[in-house]
Amino acid sequence: MSTRIEIRKALPDDAPAACTLLRRSIEECRQDDHRNHPEVLGPWLGNKTPATVAAWFSTPSNFALVAESEGQLVGMALLTQAGKVALCYVLPEALRCGVGRALLSALEDQARAWNIAKLHLNSPAGATAFFERHGYLNAGKEKSCFGLDCDLMWKRLDETCATEQGAARKRFCNCSG
């Protein structure tokens, strides 16, 4: 894969290629998570259709991005206005090339533009380390809507706000320490 990656807003016309990317990423990169169990893999892939992906891209309250390299989609991500990183997927051959990091950074920039102070997501166990490397905290296990045990991850984007909240908590704490 080329090292030149372009991140851009996803368009409904990107949906077929994005759908293929999503399905390949789940099937090939998340095997340790789904272990090819049809009761997990089937529901996980169930809504990954071109029509559904196009609808996600067209929803005004979503911010969807794709990553391209040499004209091929190599990654895609989606942020909701509720502060949820709903999707962040990369083609198997594009892993560890900076695609996921670039997509996640762009989503965080958009969240700041929307004045969202904290992001959250459900991460399959195999992807948790990626999000932890990028400052996300693990709040424990949670079942995804398709039945997979996931890690509930979150990240505060507004460090000033977090520092002020911490100072306020300390200032009004009744403890003796």
Results as ranks from 00 to 15, higher is better:
residue 102 A to I: 02
residue 63 F to H: 15
residue 11 L to K: 09
residue 75 G to H: 05
residue 109 D to K: 14
residue 60 P to Q: 04
residue 4 R to C: 08
residue 2 S to N: 15
residue 138 N to Y: 00
residue 17 A to F: 05
residue 103 L to T: 01
residue 44 W to L: 09
residue 36 N to I: 01
residue 9 K to I: 08
residue 22 L to Q: 11
residue 118 K to C: 12
residue 121 L to N: 07
residue 52 T to P: 01
residue 93 E to V: 03
residue 128 T to A: 15
residue 3 T to Q: 12
residue 47 N to A: 13
residue 32 D to M: 06
residue 36 N to E: 13
residue 10 A to K: 07
residue 115 N to M: 03
residue 119 L to W: 01
residue 169 R to N: 08
residue 51 A to F: 09
residue 84 K to F: 05
residue 130 F to I: 07
residue 80 T to S: 14
residue 137 L to E: 14
residue 147 G to K: 06
residue 33 D to I: 06
residue 155 K to V: 02
residue 106 A to Q: 15
residue 22 L to N: 08
residue 154 W to S: 15
residue 108 E to S: 06
residue 143 K to P: 03
residue 106 A to F: 08
residue 79 L to V: 01
residue 128 T to K: 14
residue 82 A to P: 01
residue 174 N to V: 05
residue 145 C to A: 12
residue 125 A to M: 02
residue 62 N to V: 02
residue 72 Q to E: 15
residue 157 L to T: 07
residue 89 Y to D: 05
residue 23 R to N: 13
residue 112 R to F: 03
residue 174 N to T: 08
residue 91 L to Y: 06
residue 92 P to M: 03
residue 169 R to T: 10
residue 6 E to C: 10
residue 71 G to S: 09
residue 83 G to F: 04
residue 88 C to L: 15
residue 153 M to G: 00
residue 31 Q to C: 01
residue 8 R to V: 04
residue 8 R to Y: 03
residue 36 N to G: 15
residue 131 F to K: 02
residue 54 A to I: 06
residue 11 L to A: 09
residue 72 Q to P: 02
residue 75 G to P: 07
residue 148 L to T: 05
residue 146 F to T: 15
residue 171 R to F: 11
residue 98 G to E: 02
residue 87 L to F: 11
residue 49 T to F: 03
residue 2 S to Y: 03
residue 34 H to F: 06
residue 176 S to G: 01
residue 126 G to M: 05
residue 170 K to D: 12
residue 151 D to T: 00
residue 107 L to Y: 12
